[in-house]
């Protein structure tokens, strides 16, 4: 990782696993994106899905997907919604449609904030969470990058000079 001298914390806040997410994070550490699949209809669903929206079944298993997809929408976040995201602003939150069908909310890295377009091709990348140089190490997180974008991973994530000034009686955080 490159030096981030203006950082006051990690670009990707430290994420720890729990029992339910162990397989997801094990896959991410291997460079694989693990999502869910309906055992009835075969629909591929987002990792956090509990019920298949097409058939109503709760009988879901897990499947590794290609990690390729398209951009549905994105937001360039200037005002961090949480203290742990302050070091990351400005960053891009993306809504991605995987080639297999499910939608994921994930960070978009390695791109100029002016660059994204709906329908643009994206692919998964894997980045460490937390401070890479300071234990404890966080889990590896799936994020996405525009396929054409130069640079990959956390190093290419954009960052601001520091926290934005706060509130003026608006419902923004």
């Amino acid at each position: 990782m490159s030096a981030r001298d203006r950082a006051v914390g990690p670009v990707f806040p430290l994420v720890a696993r729990d029992e339910a997410s162990a397989a997801f994070f094990d896959a991410a550490a291997r460079g694989q994106l693990l999502v869910r699949r309906c055992r009835i209809g075969g629909d591929v669903l987002a990792p956090e899905t509990r019920t298949c929206p097409r058939c109503g079944s709760a009988d879901l298993d897990e499947v590794v997907v290609s990690g390729r997809g398209t951009l549905v929408s994105w937001a360039v976040v200037h005002q961090a919604p949480l203290p742990s995201l302050v070091p990351a602003v400005p960053y891009i939150s993306a809504l991605v449609e995987l080639a297999e069908g499910p939608w994921l909310l994930a960070r978009l890295v390695g791109s100029d904030p002016a660059g994204p377009r709906a329908g643009a091709e994206v692919e998964v990348r894997f980045v460490p969470s937390g401070e890479p140089s300071a234990p404890p190490a966080g889990e590896v997180l799936p994020v996405f990058a525009l396929v054409s974008a130069p640079g990959t991973g956390a190093d290419a994530a954009t960052r601001a000079d520091g926290p934005m000034s706060e509130g003026e009686g608006r419902a923004t955080s």
Binding site: F12, P13, L14, V15, A16, R17, D18, A20, S21, F24, P47, E48, A75, V77, Q79, P81, L82, P83, S84, L85, A88, Y91, I92, S93, A94, L95, L105, A106, R107, S129, G130, E139, L141, P142, A171, T172, S173
Partner: peptide
């Protein structure tokens, strides 16, 4: 801070955690 856990933690790291976004 420092306590994001599980798939919810991954979703938190997506940064899309409030209505504004």
């Amino acid at each position: 801070a420092g306590g994001a856990v599980g798939l919810a933690g991954w979703q938190l790291a997506s940064g899309a955690t409030n209505p504004n976004i």
